[in-house]
């Protein structure tokens, strides 16, 4: 196994999944609109009062991001599973976990990154100030990859299982809780003038840990599910 073939594989995998996503743009946009709609429902359901909305804004945006990223998990492996390309991936000489990481990265680019870029708009809707908005973006930037990485394990485990879409939410949502706590905690701390660097470094630590560990779990889960 040499370096160049590994990086060649990485590039091939990422560009493949991005190309596929571009040819099925509607799927990507659905998740994005879901995110926007969920957040927009809160003022209607709770109250249009800005003071109240501001205080719940981080939690609302984060929970919506959690749900949106979970919804998009279905696409991660199921198409490849159905047309047999996943089977071929398991038979590649390259380590499966690196391949998985490339796939999750591509998935995050089309499902997680748009959420990050869109969050200022929603933050403004809910009356967050500029500091809060910037921090919202930073926490989402650190946190959404973790969601994709953890979610990949759940998506791999529920591959081809009946009711897999709902089941995956049962499996991964409890595991998303630490990210939710520290993601919203950072924004809350910033808006109330407290120190938030600790939260960010913890989110960073979650990201590093999940980059290292979850691809191994996902690879093992894929091998079990493809049997």
């Amino acid at each position: 196994m040499n370096q160049s073939s590994l990086s060649g594989m990485w590039r091939a995998m990422v560009s493949r999944d991005l190309t596929l996503a571009m040819r099925r743009r509607a799927d990507v946009l659905t998740t994005l609109f879901f995110f926007i709609i969920v957040v927009s429902l809160f003022p209607l359901g709770v109250s249009p009062e800005m003071e109240l909305l501001r205080s719940i804004a981080p939690g609302v945006i984060w929970v919506a991001a959690l749900l949106a990223s979970m919804l998009s998990l279905g696409r991660l492996f199921s198409d490849d599973f159905q047309d047999g390309t996943l089977e071929q991936m398991l038979l590649l000489p390259q380590p499966l976990s690196v391949l998985v990481l490339a796939k999750v990265f591509a998935h995050w680019l089309v499902s997680g990154l748009p959420l990050v870029l869109l969050s200022p708009l929603l933050g403004m809707q809910l009356g967050l100030d500029s500091d809060g908005i910037v921090l919202m973006m930073v926490t989402l930037l650190l946190g959404t990859p973790v969601l994709s990485l953890i979610g990949a394990v759940g998506a791999a485990l529920t591959l081809g299982v009946r009711g897999g879409g709902v089941l995956v939410s049962l499996l991964v949502l409890p595991l998303y809780i630490p990210v939710l706590i520290f993601g919203t905690g950072a924004v809350d701390a910033a808006t109330s003038g407290m120190d938030y660097e600790g939260h960010l470094s913890l989110l960073g630590a979650f990201l590093v840990l999940s980059v290292v560990l979850t691809p191994l779990g996902t690879a093992a889960a894929l091998r079990i599910s493809v049997e």
Binding site: V153, T158, S225, E227
Partner: peptide
């Protein structure tokens, strides 16, 4: 997860993971 998978071997291994 265990009850959603029909094949008992896959169910046991997936839920173990």
């Amino acid at each position: 997860l265990q009850s959603a998978i029909d094949d008992p071997r896959r169910a046991a291994r997936a839920s173990a993971l």
